[in-house]
Write a protein that binds this DNA or RNA. Sequence first.
DNA 1: TTGTAGGCGTTATCAG
DNA 2: CTGATAACGCCTACAA
Lengths: 333, 333
Amino acid sequence: MNIYDISRLAGVSIATVSRVLNGSDKVSDATRQKVLDIMEQNGYTPNAFARGLGLNTMRTVGILCADSSDIYLAKVIYLLERELWKQGYASMLCCTGYRLEEKEKYLQLLLSRSVDALILAGSQFIEEKSEDNGYLCEAAKKVPVFLLNGVLAGSGAYSVVCDDALAVKELADSLIERGSRQPVFLYRSPSYSGKQKLSGFRRSLAEHGLCPDGRSFLCPAGIPETARFLESLQAEGLCFDACLSSDDELAAGAVKYALAGGKRIPDELQITGYNNSLLSVCSTPEITTADNRVEFLCTTAVSLLMQVLGGKDVPERTMYSANLIHRATTRPL
Amino acid sequence: MNIYDISRLAGVSIATVSRVLNGSDKVSDATRQKVLDIMEQNGYTPNAFARGLGLNTMRTVGILCADSSDIYLAKVIYLLERELWKQGYASMLCCTGYRLEEKEKYLQLLLSRSVDALILAGSQFIEEKSEDNGYLCEAAKKVPVFLLNGVLAGSGAYSVVCDDALAVKELADSLIERGSRQPVFLYRSPSYSGKQKLSGFRRSLAEHGLCPDGRSFLCPAGIPETARFLESLQAEGLCFDACLSSDDELAAGAVKYALAGGKRIPDELQITGYNNSLLSVCSTPEITTADNRVEFLCTTAVSLLMQVLGGKDVPERTMYSANLIHRATTRPL
DNA sequence: TTGTAGGCGTTATCAG
DNA sequence: CTGATAACGCCTACAA
């Protein structure tokens, strides 16, 4: 069943059918109704490929993320999809993993399918070496590219980021205010946001006259892994009275470590997480964390995206602040 | 840049270019190389819409789920996407929410885009009233439809399900063996899998000579909500020495409830979750749960899907058993 | 091995 | 307001 069939049945030309299909006002009501009826009766659905071919768009945006099962990214993806759907766009999901080669392949696939835009969720997409980011710049020349929680200056891509550096600095500040003198910082990867958080940590320590060197660690993912990692740190003789973490999962691991070792939280060990995810309230005691406003992130990104697609000029960088949430793993003031 | 440009530059016909594109062996090596070079030099990418129009497929499958930020569904979606990608298929993600109307709309969208297949993740897609499932049957006539953790007999859709009823029965059995005489069962929704689990609970109690009536409850989602719900149950005078839950989040709420009320786990209250998600090991004590083998679920579903697309005949129903994982919220035998 | 030509189902531009 | 007709870019018999 195609537009020709409908036109024949309705006794009009395909042009008229197409007009009805696209809500043109240059069709008499009688004709419109007749065509509509025929379509209804025959359960006609326009062919999206043909339409895509003519219009060169299928109203689809590609969402890339390293791992959509990550509790934080999962939320991002959910919110993005819902927001895009509201705007009449479908979402192509791509879980690239962490290897550059795979990321490029996925991006290529999406481009070859003529998606209307690309959203890269999570800071795993910014590589260390700037030449490795070339493919992103190339992509940005073809379609709008949005980086969520990542910045790539001069790439032509738009970024929406939470001020992670500031949030971690404030978290560290507050721990120090609450009596910590030997905080450590655990982070999961040296990604853009990982490095931002690290810099916030170092800045806070420096401002308080504490030496930040040798107090930040790349930590393997996973709750038990994190607990073990802290045990090994302790075994090596490192002293720490607070553990800042780049995400709630690491913080949950720190809680496990304290509970297993009989360390009282928050008296002997203060802990902070990041993201305000389910994990932060699943732990007992509940974890002090930073809410990086994932909902705001997603609605803003999609709103900006729609503006860009509408030909409007929007800022290449948008940054917003997080919201600290004090719970039971930090001392009261 | 299209196939005509390439053909002109290479001094061949578009048919030859197309053959090269599709890896036909009816092209001389010299010609092939020449064409390939031209493509390379010009960064040519075939237009997916045009190809889709001719072939009537874009190698895309639609993944529907109610809420991809759910920790369990997020994993399902991740695994499905990776598996589909391996097979050369892209994934269109749709988060439908829980309203029937929205589910239908999404499914319609996917169908109108001529996806090659549909995967419905989670048992939220089977409605109570069978007439409400009509749209699924209709869809199943057009493309292969896969139900993950849901069964719709006579729909023409394929289902892959974990034997949740059995798993919960075994969980209940083991709690009773471990001394529980007054277990309760908390579940989140009366969906297909919710009802399966409930039946497993009731069967276990009945087999052990315990009356299952008035011991199962629909519980609001969320950790603190669950904790409050159990408090209200207690306040109403209900006695219980074990709490089985239809997912780990509810179980985490039960742990909170016990911890807050000073009830010793597992001596005074045994708890079991479901899904073996991160939440089950984030809690302290760690939660006894059932691993419903999400990885197996997804690889099996995609493997079956590929067979169906390849024209093979596969069983309409596939069921597999879960794996019980005893942790610290249940007593040792 | 290569080329020609028709078809896939729309949209859009002109005439009328 | 309506109708021909030419794109859109690729695939694939069928011919050579």
